[in-house]
Amino acid sequence: MKQVILTITENTALTPTTWRMKLAGDVSAVTAPGQFIDLRLDGHFLRRPISVNDVEYGTDPDGGDGTVTIIYKVLGHGTEEMTHYLPGRELDVLTGLGNGYDLSDAGEHPLLIGGGVGIPPLYLAARQLMQRVRDGSVKDVTVILGFNSEDEMYYVDEFEELGCRVAVATADGSCGVKGFVTDAFRALVTECGSLCIAEAFGDENDPDSEPEYVRYTHFFTCGPEPMLRALYKEVYEEAGISGQMSFEERMGCGFGACMGCSCRTVTGYKRICKDGPVLRTEEILWQK
């Protein structure tokens, strides 16, 4: 964790309720996708924790010329206030909070699943995984994005530009698969025998190529808790694919001091802000 002053360089609406903000300065404490930063806003006592959407480190060895991108949904007074902030404004920010996703477990065919405001942190994960595709350690990256409707969609093009295979689900069916991300997941997979969940890959330039069936090796997800529960059941328990899930909770401090965001896990009590927000499917204990 590092407390820094960052300067807003961009603050634009992606949809009527979803905004993207870019902040320049020392972002060296951000070390993994899935981490978050905590912004102090005028007139609000608690900071606002928002996941890192992307990070660029710049060339300054002291890390002073980097940029961090966040995407936030306008949900309350704080995020509403943020939409009025103009480029040039300086913000007091705690950076590099939380554990983030561990991409070393991605395997050759990782699957990224994001729902609504949970999509932003998957972008940095996808970008870093696509670098591994170029290195050869990852073969392909599949992304499922879920929205309520077409007019709430954002970042589909950005994931495609990275080179990911992107599937979209909308609750009202206005784009992609009608339903939830689990419906899109079912549409992607084909059962082969009793165990193998597979996806057809063919050469798009060769209509005669035989599809190649591969098993997703790991999944990374972030989104509303009902979505996480559904994915836990379908992807982890039923399809047998391990994954990492990013959780949201109301936080006090954001850095592990106040025990405001504790949860129970298989390995004991954890703080969503410090020991999470990413938990592995193997350690999750659902409440109620």
Binding site: F45, L46, R250
Partner: peptide, 16 residues
Amino acid sequence: ETPRIAECPSGMLNAV
């Protein structure tokens, strides 16, 4: 159980 935190004017509620 959580939520344990709520913001207030110039302060916060906690029920850790």
